[in-house]
Design a protein around this nucleic acid. Structure first.
Lengths: 155, 155
DNA sequence: ATATGTGCAAATGGTTTGCATCCTC
DNA sequence: GAGGATGCAAACCATTTGCACATAT
């Protein structure tokens, strides 16, 4: 299994014309096993949890950028103070509902959204085929209630 | 006109239970006249272009946060290194198509998207009514072409 | 009168970068 | 062997914060 992921990592790197260094294989193998989105620090922690020589912060950041540019990772704009990423799998088109107040994130699959975005992409000159994702920022009901409560108390 | 916007600013502040200081009125009046989205530095520059005692960076940042929490401004996650905002008008539901490579942003209005997001919001416990927005990150055609060109050259 | 807002300058924190060294191709 | 990759520590830069002073209600 770890074997498989290392192989996958090597394939991905070669496909992206990136040199297969031990650090890159190690990071990519680890990330390909992560579910959902993650930040740079989480990734670093996960990678260096393994009994291997640790990967430095600088290398990790550089690699995250490279992988995103190659379409292997997708950068998700979920919060404004730290970048989050997703491993790009074959068919995992989904969008995120994000609460603007508490940061809660819900992953959602919707063919309606996908189709419409495809339309809009064509119309405005975008290719949502690669690294496409959709983020919706709103308030979750819990935070809305809280907000309503505060407003009421203020009276 | 500037008069009108100052009045609007005062109304908004009072409605949000925020004290009407000269700085706040000045900032909000200025922002309410801006079209499209803007970053903190742009806002600061615009505000302090007026022949008035300048508003400090700290105050501006504090105010942007307050205004967003009150739903007067909307924070738009268009790039990961700096926050951007929009003045929230009455009926301006729109989404943004963002190119992951060059940062190009296209504002798009789509009732299909709005309806679907309303559905999804209900289903997953979000209120897209307040401060809702949608962001789609993709690659614009120009950047796709460039990418294809680079890959070809690499061979 | 009192709670709040403002400005300054220093602190923060995620991310990037310069440079000497190491490793892949 | 040569050009790209790594690690360290310092640099960056948008944003936040502590504190003394000013202001709105």
């Amino acid at each position: 299994m770890a074997r498989d992921r290392s192989e996958l990592a090597r394939d991905l790197l070669r496909g992206a014309r990136l040199r297969c260094t031990s650090q890159r294989v190690q990071v990519l193998a680890c990330l390909s096993g992560m579910t959902g989105h993650f930040g740079a620090e989480e990734a670093l922690a996960a990678v260096n949890m393994l009994p291997r020589p640790p990967v430095s912060r600088a290398t990790l950041y550089r690699l995250l950028n490279d992988l995103e540019q190659q379409g292997i990772l997708r950068r998700v704009l979920l919060s404004e103070n730290c970048s989050r990423y997703e491993f790009v799998g074959p068919q995992d088109r989904h969008c995120h509902l994000v609460c603007a107040s508490c940061g809660r994130v819900e992953e959602v699959r919707s063919t309606v959204l996908d189709q419409e975005l495809r339309h809009l992409g064509e119309k405005y000159g975008f290719s949502p085929d690669r690294a496409s994702l959709e983020v919706t920022v709103a308030s979750c009901n819990e935070c809305e209630r809280q907000r309503a409560r505060e407003l009421t108390n203020g009276d």
